[in-house]
Nucleic acid binder design. Sequence first.
DNA 1: AAGAGGCCCTGATAGC
DNA 2: TGCTATCAGGGCCTCT
Length: 288
Amino acid sequence: MPELPEVEVVRQSLNKKIKQKKVKKVIIRNRNLRIKIPLNFTRIFKNQKIFKVDRFSKYLILHLSNKNFCLIHLGMSGTIHLVNDKKKNLITNTSFYNSPVLPKKHNHVEIVFENLRIIYNDPRRFGFFQIIKSLSLLKKRFSHLGPEPFESKFDTNYVISFFRNKKKNIKNMLIDQKFVSGIGNIYASEILFLCKINPNKKVCLLKRDDCLKIIKNSRKILFEAIKRGGSSIKDFKNTLGRKGTFQKKFNVYERGGMNCKRVNCSGIIKKKTISNRSTFFCNTCQNT
DNA sequence: AAGAGGCCCTGATAGC
DNA sequence: TGCTATCAGGGCCTCT
């Protein structure tokens, strides 16, 4: 579910709440995630301070005072809930996907602090926790990933040379984390709409100007999405939880059959499955 | 060897 | 009301 902007919103919220806090204990409710939580997992956290909460791409990184790093990936359905233990069961000012009511099913991990705990919930179990022992191993862990859109390394030279001789379509390329990290299925469609590039276009056919637009609009979309607290697709019944509002700004995603929002364009938004992922685009202004 | 497709898993929704 | 089929924001593995 979460792409870079949603993970960043969670990071900001977590960092605010648990930075410099000492872990009292970790409770494993269900070890079964994409990577099974190891038996020694709780021991590594015991009495450690969380230096800070970082992020790379769609991965959260907890910096522990014993120099270990804890990666958290939310997969498709992972959510992190902050619970204020002082006021029993009241969820505090929460991070991104929180509902004001604590989920009863699919809680996997609880990290307990003084008067506060975070609860990881994940119905589909595509997310995971992973301990990384050192900074060099952390770098190694991410070595297969391309730069984030915001990095200066993600420039025209990089994009042009990456696209050379590649027959992949641009939609699949944008969600390929080896090319660029953090863009997922929603934002790929939104970025290409701003670029006026057809998602089926083979990347080797893109011009220098197209590459420039891709860089510019990737940054623009992700930046705007973060600013608006991310995108919330499914509307939960509870309305008190804090949600993102960027879904209101979608030009194409989930707008199949509707009119194109671009001024002076009379096109209709099409939904097309590309490599088993739904893709949305305007059949008129994204015709190149 | 690049690129497409299947699969991991549960829940919500649509259609009968 | 209850069945079945389809789909969902990620990433890894396998096959061609």
